[in-house]
């Protein structure tokens, strides 16, 4: 399987059929004598920003910490929970329980949720 072509940037869908971002990065495990393999799929703004420029990644990380949106490092999904099917990537997690929706939840609570009719 061609990782870049089949996995990177593909739509991630959680176990409930909900969209939870795209595969923003892949974390490889390189061991002596073994073929390199994918250990994790990485999701999140920091990873996205890093693909553009490292300084941008630092900015996004500091914004995230400043607003207490998501204190953790980029969210990583273990490869064991991943199923690549066609042009989508199904992930055996519940999106609501992962940090992938950190900004979504923060906005829901602090901004959008406060507007009438939401």
């Amino acid at each position: 399987m061609e990782l870049i072509r089949d996995c990177l940037d593909k739509q991630l869908i959680d176990r409930n059929g909900r969209k939870m971002g795209k595969a923003d990065g892949l974390v490889m495990l390189i061991e002596e004598g073994k073929r390199p393999r994918v250990a994790f799929i990485e999701v999140g703004g920091v990873t996205q920003a890093r693909r553009l420029h490292t300084r941008l990644a630092k900015l996004v990380a500091s914004l995230s910490k400043r607003f207490k949106v998501d204190e953790s490092d980029p969210y990583r999904i273990p490869w064991s929970k991943v199923v690549v099917s066609g042009i989508d990537v199904t992930v055996n997690v519940d999106a609501e329980e992962t940090p992938a929706l950190a900004w979504e939840k923060w906005l829901r609570k602090n901004v959008i949720g406060k507007i009438p009719g939401a």
Binding site: Q11, L12, R18, K19, M20, G21, K22, Q48, W103, E104, K105, L107, R108, V111, I112, G113, I115, G117, A118
Partner: peptide
């Protein structure tokens, strides 16, 4: 769509806070 968020005009704004913003 590019960032992979949940998007649909048919959902309530609170369910797609980033899209609404």
């Amino acid at each position: 769509q590019g960032f992979g968020w949940n998007w649909s005009e048919n959902q309530r704004p609170r369910e797609e806070a980033r899209f609404s913003l």
